Simulated assay, not measured.
Amino acid sequence: MGKNKEYLAIGLMSGTSVDGVDAAIIKTDGYSVKRYGKCHHLAYSKEQQKIILEAIDQARDAGNPDIRSNSISMAEGFINEIHTKAVQEIIKINDLNRDDIDVVGFHGQTLLHNPDKGWSWQIGDGREIASELGITVINDFRRDDVENGGQGAPLVPIFHRALLPEKNDYPIALLNIGGVANITWIGGDDPSDMLGFDTGPGNALLDDWVREHSDLPYDKDGELSASGSVQEIFVNDLMNHEYFTEKPPKSLDRNEFGIGQVSMLSPADGAATLIAFTVAAVKMAEVMCPDYVKKWYVCGGGAHNPTMMKMLSDTLYGDVEDISALGFDGDYVEAEAFAYFAVRKLLNLPITFPGTTGVSEPSTGGKINKP
């Protein structure tokens, strides 16, 4: 396998926002990246979302990946089924055949992330999916990093770097606002001039809040948060959490924060305050970077929330743009990243680095499951 060979790879992502499965196809030699064809999203039903959220709650109570409740087993069963279906459908809509795909990168569904105890818990069976598809599937991308002293997150910085054009006005940051938000700070062309870490909650708290106060799964077009007023005293209280003073690299579990601290606010004020909390955490992350960012590129669900984007633009030092300015669809960057990681695993190339996860040395990641 040489650097010049391009692989056609599918990436799959089901994030902490628990909205569904994203599937994307890329061409890559393990270094540069080309988008390929149409992306695809399979949404979870409300019942499936409920089961996953129950599994997350039970995983937190168990505190041990070796313990499997009925909800966790049930969730893993349909995680396998839906991810398999997502691959089959994206192959079909792009007029491809199974044999056209070299590899699938499958993240699985995170239930609990606890690198301080030496593990990060994702459900989903790569062997079963590989057998069903007849395609090599790579999963379990975080294990090697955690076992070598890393945080196991964020994984995306090396992929973020691959998205940038050849000439840039550094420093640049790519900000992914999914359920948890993470930053990739890139100071220059040297691959080692890179820092990555979770900034704090992304959309997870806001989504939980909106689901509790409406029939909607998220703050569509930022309408609820835009109608409210930020209650700074609550933002300041939330920002007192010790996580925000820890030095990066660092990572965060979705369940580290909850909506209980703003439970007495109105639906609109609560939504506005939770967005302000996400933005305040990003601002703190900006201060922790080696130098101020000149240009921010935002991806993930948060990029679709005008209230979030305006607050970021008003608060951060550099210019803030949607990652679409680079020619990529921000909704599928993480799915594309796992396609990229799968190819790098085939080539035995690292995906995590001391500056991105705190791992002792650059580490490859993933388990190869052949059909």
Rank of each mutant, 00 (worst) to 15 (best):
Y332G: 01
V235L: 03
D189C: 06
L12Y: 10
Y36S: 05
A173M: 06
F78A: 04
L316S: 07
V359R: 01
V180K: 07
G358F: 04
D57W: 07
V282Q: 03
E223P: 00
V87S: 05
D207I: 03
A325M: 13
T352H: 10
C39W: 06
K310S: 14
D116R: 13
H113K: 06
P249W: 04
H40N: 12
N369W: 04
I183G: 02
S45I: 09
D322T: 05
A268Y: 00
L265G: 05
I56M: 14
T110K: 10
S251H: 09
A342D: 00
N240T: 12
A337M: 13
K345A: 07
N168H: 05
S251K: 10
L133E: 01
L347S: 02
D57E: 15
P371E: 09
K220L: 12
G179D: 04
G11R: 08
V156P: 00
Q88M: 13
K34W: 02
L205I: 11
F277K: 09
V137A: 05
R98K: 15
N148S: 12
R35H: 07
S251E: 10
D207E: 08
F234Y: 15
L111I: 11
I101T: 10
I56S: 01
A226T: 13
E336P: 00
V262A: 11
I158A: 10
S71W: 00
V293K: 02
Y317T: 14
K247H: 12
N70M: 11
L155I: 03
K50V: 00
A281L: 01
A337R: 00
V18I: 15
E147K: 15
D61M: 14
T307Q: 11
K310R: 15
I323T: 04
K247F: 04
P290E: 08
G77P: 02
G105M: 06
I82P: 00
N176K: 09
C299F: 08
A24M: 08
R142G: 01
F277D: 03
E166D: 15
S45H: 12
E47T: 14
I51F: 07
E246H: 11
D144H: 14
H40Q: 09
S71D: 12
P350F: 02
P217V: 08
V359M: 04
V21H: 03
K50P: 00
F197A: 06
S71P: 00
R142V: 01
P65F: 12
S120F: 05
P267D: 07
V333G: 02
A268H: 10
T278N: 05
P171F: 05
F244M: 06
G178D: 01
I10K: 10
D322A: 09
S324T: 12
N348I: 00
G260Y: 04
V103I: 14
T315N: 09
G30A: 06
V343T: 05
A271Y: 07
I177M: 11
G150W: 13
F141E: 11
G260D: 15
H41N: 13
I51H: 04
R211T: 02
N148F: 10
A9H: 05
L216R: 13
T315F: 06
S14P: 05
G20L: 10
D144F: 12
V87I: 12
G150E: 12
F234M: 11
A153Q: 04
E6A: 07
G152I: 04
V262R: 07
K294D: 04
I91V: 15
V33D: 08
A181E: 07
L312H: 11
Y340V: 01
Q88F: 03
